[in-house]
């Protein structure tokens, strides 16, 4: 850990358009470079909204969200999309691959939007094969259609996609929710191994407190954010 915040939220308030009943407020939250953080929260506590804010796919109504020192609201849409592609690898809860694309297409997809990440990966297809092997996926899987893989295989491909090009930040939205306990443990082992190798920052969202032991820090959503109706 460097002690420098790579993700920072300050006085953030957000309401989904047309949903005044849901207002997320995050007075202060930050993640240091190289830190692994588990963000715990129940359903509806605003975890996914918080991740969308950090990724810059939505903007807060008030406050500041910064990634790697850049205020996301101050960037154009194009620059924000570029920053996300370059800096952040994302793993979704489920259905997180393009089912019609090949495994290889899915893994190298982020490089299409991130020239710097692409530059760190001179031969994307070979790298995709390498990542698949490291994640324990069978040989030749890169040519398979993603939709035909098992749930466990899909999750590993999602990790490979998040890791390719060594993004400094990894964000995972309940990646283990659809896995059994053994598969969960194996999946986390693989992810943490890769994070350690790449020196990435990991922010993982879950409702399962048992995962906490593996992380540098465990943060509860209720401690950093509040959800309520928007004040009129």
């Amino acid at each position: 850990m460097s002690g420098l915040p790579i993700i920072g939220l300050n006085g953030v308030e957000f309401t989904w358009p047309g949903r005044a009943s849901f207002a997320l407020s995050v007075p202060e939250f930050s993640v240091e470079q190289g830190e692994t953080v588990l963000l715990l929260g129940a359903s509806g506590s605003g975890k996914s909204t918080l991740l969308s804010l950090i990724c810059g796919t939505i903007l807060p109504n008030r406050g500041r969200v910064s990634v790697d020192g850049a205020d996301l609201a101050g960037l154009s849409w194009r620059d924000r999309d570029r920053l996300r592609a370059e800096q952040i690898g994302v793993i979704f809860q489920q259905f997180n691959l393009l089912p019609f694309g090949s495994v290889s297409d899915n893994i190298i997809l982020p490089l299409r939007f991130a020239p710097k990440r692409r530059a760190r990966c001179p031969d994307p297809h070979t790298k995709a094969v390498e990542l698949c092997t490291q994640l324990g996926l069978p040989d030749g899987i890169t040519k398979c259609t993603a939709g035909k893989l098992s749930v466990g295989q899909q999750q590993r491909v999602a990790v490979a996609r998040a890791l390719i090009g060594q993004p400094p930040i990894l964000i995972a939205d309940e990646p283990t929710s659809s896995l059994d306990e053994t598969a969960q443990a194996h999946f986390l082992d693989l992810m943490f191994d890769q994070v350690a190798v790449q020196g990435s920052t990991l922010l993982l969202v879950s409702h399962d407190p048992r995962l906490g032991a593996r992380f540098d820090r465990v943060v509860r959503m209720s401690d950093i954010a509040s959800v309520g109706a928007r004040a009129t």
Binding site: D81, A85, E86, F92, N96, P110, F113, R161
Partner: peptide, 11 residues
């Protein structure tokens, strides 16, 4: 998914 990977709305 595409947006999360860095695709812009224009993409």
């Amino acid at each position: 998914i595409l947006r999360a990977m860095g695709a812009s709305p224009l993409t």
